[in-house]
Amino acid sequence: MEKFKREALTILSNYLTDDDLKRVDEVLTVLLTRYEITEKTTDIVVYKNEIPDEIKSFLVSKSIKGLTKSSLLHYKRTLINFANNISKDVKEITANDIRLYLLKYEHAHTIGKSALDDIRRVLNSFYKWMVREDIILKNPVEKVDPIKCDKKVRQPLTMLELEQMRNAAETLREKALFETLYSTGCRVSEIINLNKTDIDFNTGRVKVYGKGKKERFCFLNARSQLALRKYLFSRKDNSEALFVADKQPYNRLGKGSIEKDIKNIAIRAGINRPVFPHLIRHTTATHMLHNGASLAEVQAILGHESPATTQIYAKLDLQNLQTIHQKCII
Results as ranks from 00 to 15, higher is better:
Leu242Ser: 07
Asp198Arg: 13
Arg187Gly: 04
Met159Gln: 13
Glu161Ser: 04
Lys213Cys: 02
Asn167Val: 11
Leu181Pro: 03
Arg223Trp: 03
Leu232His: 10
Leu253Ser: 06
Leu220Arg: 10
Glu179Met: 08
Asn238Thr: 14
Tyr209Cys: 01
Asn195Pro: 01
Leu177Trp: 05
Ser224Val: 06
Lys214Gln: 09
Leu226Cys: 05
Phe178Trp: 08
Glu240Trp: 03
Lys247Ile: 14
Phe243Gln: 02
Met159Cys: 00
Cys186Met: 11
Ala245Gly: 01
Met165Phe: 04
Arg223Met: 05
Ser234Lys: 14
Glu215Gln: 15
Val188Gly: 00
Ala168Met: 09
Phe219Ala: 06
Leu162Gln: 09
Glu161Phe: 04
Lys214His: 10
Gly210Phe: 08
Asn251Ser: 07
Arg205Gln: 11
Glu161Met: 07
Arg252Ala: 06
Ser189Met: 12
Gln164Phe: 13
Arg229Trp: 04
Tyr231Pro: 00
Glu190Lys: 06
Asn202Ile: 01
Cys186Val: 06
Leu232Ile: 15
Leu220Gly: 04
Thr203Asp: 00
Cys186Ala: 13
Gln164Gly: 01
Lys213Gly: 00
Ala241Lys: 04
Leu226Trp: 02
Leu232Phe: 09
Asp246Ser: 15
Val206Thr: 12
Asp200Pro: 07
Ser234His: 14
Arg216Ile: 13
Ser189Val: 09
Ser234Asn: 13
Gly212Ile: 04
